[in-house]
Write a protein that binds this DNA or RNA. Structure first.
Lengths: 207, 207
DNA sequence: GATAGAACGGAATTGTTCGTTCCAGTATGC
DNA sequence: GCATACTGGAACGAACAATTCCGTTCTATC
């Protein structure tokens, strides 16, 4: 608690966490929302990042590194080819890296470093795809870009609080995996199914 | 060409078409964008709708009616239970009614009439779901609300021009249908698969 | 053909939002 | 005690967008 330096270090983390949460929820959120969420003043933000763009770049870079870490983890953790692939997809959905990368891209200028991370991420994705196809567990008429778009679709699901959203995304991921896995089969879906009441909320303004 | 009245009638349609296109592409678009797209002045818009909200309500109502029409059409056109269900889903994706309803909802106050249309749409969706499950062609652990969320996921796909976007949506719909249909099976996917190049476009600002 | 008025285009108005800057306050380490 | 690193938040200015307003154009009618 004591020490101005410790406070500053804590704020570093506080701000990044808040920024992740805020921009994940709304990519176009104002920078003041980040400060408020972090419980700090605006100047605490501007002391660390010269502009909003710089903060977004940092976030996006972190997101890509997270993606890479998740992919490598999946390759390390599993021997079974299908589990490797499915573990990768579940990991990406869990980490919600899409909300930190693609959804933010286009709102700022990508740096050189970002491109390199993206290339590395793409390379890993391709490798995971290839391994799954060659092992005969993933249907071969699907491309790595197909998978990227599937991640985006799953990231578009947003309903209720963060936990419920994650639950539903995993439900739909499981559904997708049923149609990706070879041989074809239906497996039980995780998570409580949504109902009409849950959906009806979205018709009122101010959401 | 002649007749101020004829011109006005033509503008009615021009404006609605433009509004559909503009708000489908970007639900938060300014009203001036609609006027520009329609090739008319702003006052031509305000002559017809007292406010932006009124225009959105009109659009949303039309979207719901379109949804209803598509659903009824599917029930009328098909004898085979699976084709009825799949035809319905393909029709909804084609008509892109989600971009005119849910994506706009929350940006305006829903009217009484809107609620009634929504109820009718929901009723039809439930009926189609029930029929497919009872015929044994749709896996039973899926709810109507699941299907609604699947439509939203598909509507979130947006890449390249309008035609390409539609092609990709149908591709992912086909993938989903593979995991919805009973018995499980993989069928050929329509549309050209996306590739990394197509995706890389999205990293630059101003999109 | 003169004219009332419907319909129009688009500039002006007004309010809001948001990124960024600025300044005064506060606590720390020396 | 004091220089200073850090902070909170008000103030600024630019951009944006809904709506209003006004001068103009065209048509239908007499």
């Amino acid at each position: 608690m004591s020490g101005r330096k410790a406070q500053a270090a804590r704020n570093d983390e506080l701000i990044l966490t808040a920024a992740r949460a805020v921009f994940t929820a709304d990519p176009g959120a104002p920078i003041a929302a980040v400060a408020e969420r972090a419980g700090v003043g605006i100047s605490a933000l501007y002391r660390r990042y010269p502009s909003k763009e710089a903060l977004l770049q940092k976030l996006c870079g972190d997101g890509l590194q997270l993606y890479i870490a998740v992919a490598e983890q999946a390759m390390r953790d599993h021997d079974d080819p299908w589990e490797e692939f499915a573990g990768y997809m579940r990991g990406i959905v869990d980490a919600d890296t899409n909300s930190l990368t693609i959804k933010l891209a286009g709102t700022f200028h990508p740096t050189q470093e970002l491109h390199q991370h993206a290339a590395r991420a793409s390379e890993l994705a391709t490798r995971l795809h290839t391994r799954a196809v060659e092992a005969g567990v993933l249907r071969p008429d699907i491309t790595p870009a197909d998978l990227a778009l599937i991640f985006e679709q799953l990231a578009s699901v947003k309903l209720g609080d963060e936990q419920r959203t994650g639950e539903l995304r995993h439900r739909f991921l499981a559904l997708m995996l049923d149609s990706l896995r070879q041989p074809p089969a239906h497996r039980p879906l995780p998570g409580r199914a949504p109902d009409d009441l849950e959906l009806s909320v979205r018709w009122s303004p101010v959401g």
